[in-house]
Design a binder for these strands. Structure first.
Lengths: 195, 195
DNA sequence: TTCTAAAAAGCTAACCGTTAGTGTTACGGT
DNA sequence: ACCGTAACACTAACGGTTAGCTTTTTAGAA
């Protein structure tokens, strides 16, 4: 509850960071598949079991940064101005995420992810969790008044926009094009107004 | 090209079938995670390496039947009557697939899949391949005249409909609801007609 | 029929990610 | 100063997967 600044937690965070940094360096250097867990642990000077107490699996080492994805999308729904429409808010957030993936500093990592089936699959599973969180946030907003199914559907569509943009040559234009389709789908799911 | 009825290919198919049958029986009996590859191979009376020459991984053993998924969806696009609209044709196909998953004969398998993270993930990867094939089929039909991006988008949306229906309590109703949203998205992607 | 090339299946032995079991240290609160 | 516990380490294994190599089976030519 106090701001987490015990020596203990600082050391823990440092260990975690050192593992992630070491892993990413080795992976980018020699390829994800060519570097084994035992080697990462040795290079970071920790036991293999310690590594796995910080990260659930090998793939998770790569996604250390940018884990907040999930929170950010949900926040884009819950924290928007009371009269701000949903879809543009989500489009803005997706655009920001896409820009982050294509930024110079992170681009090599994303290129590695795209080139590695295991990492693509892991990212996909993260996206699914993300879609569920987003669906819950949408369904929870009474102002939107859509079906459970419609909420889940739109959430998946939004995640699709991100996935399609990541695969695209012109990510930002792709986001816009997909979102114009999402907008239409969202309107089509509106409750009929003559009650 | 001749109907494949050499002794060789019959024996090979038989071996494959025996492995798949044995695996499914053991999995349904005692749980997917509780049965190891070595045990499946022993029970089917083949070497482990033989098993892996027929199936790419453990998960693939479960999806032996219903692999045609991919072809069927693409066929629903390419084989439809010249003036039949795309979306209803796809909805019909998805409905058929969903019904197949809930049929009494296959329901236990799908229940096992839903209960096993590894199998859910594998199914998701199959869906992605499927979406790509479907996107190609849609993009290849000049009568539809949509963008590459629009084709890919609709393909993903259609696959989403299937995924959402599988997770739903009322699969057929879910398919209909999602498809009404897809229909709107599809129309919104139509090329503007005043050229 | 007999022979041969190749496909299919087998065996061994390992690699790699991951985990259980069991200590050992270092820290935080008392 | 002391105790409970969180963090880390060590060993040893398990389960999926593959490489390397040998043996069996089959298709088709001679």
């Amino acid at each position: 509850m106090t701001v987490p600044t015990g020596r203990r937690e600082r050391k823990k965070a440092a260990t975690r960071q050192k593992i992630a940094d070491t892993a990413l360096r080795l992976f980018l250097d020699r390829g994800y598949d060519a570097v084994g867990i035992r080697e990462v642990a040795a290079e970071a000077d920790v036991a293999v079991t310690t590594l796995f107490s910080h990260f659930a699996c090998k793939e998770a080492l790569v996604f250390e940064q940018g884990e907040d994805f999930e929170q950010r999308l949900a926040a884009a729904v819950t924290d928007r101005a009371p009269d701000e429409p949903l879809i543009p808010a989500l489009r803005g957030e997706i655009q920001a995420l896409v820009r982050h993936c294509t930024a110079d500093s992170t681009a090599p990592v994303w290129r590695m992810i795209d080139a590695t089936p295991a990492l693509r699959a892991y990212e996909e599973s993260m996206r699914q969790r993300c879609a569920r969180t987003l669906a819950a946030a949408i369904a929870a907003d009474p102002a939107l008044s859509r079906t459970e199914t419609a909420s889940r559907t739109i959430a998946r569509f939004v995640i699709d926009a991100y996935a399609l943009a990541r695969e695209s040559d012109a990510p930002e234009a792709t986001v816009d094009e997909v979102f114009s389709m999402i907008e239409a789908a969202w309107e089509a799911a509106a409750p009929s107004r003559r009650t």
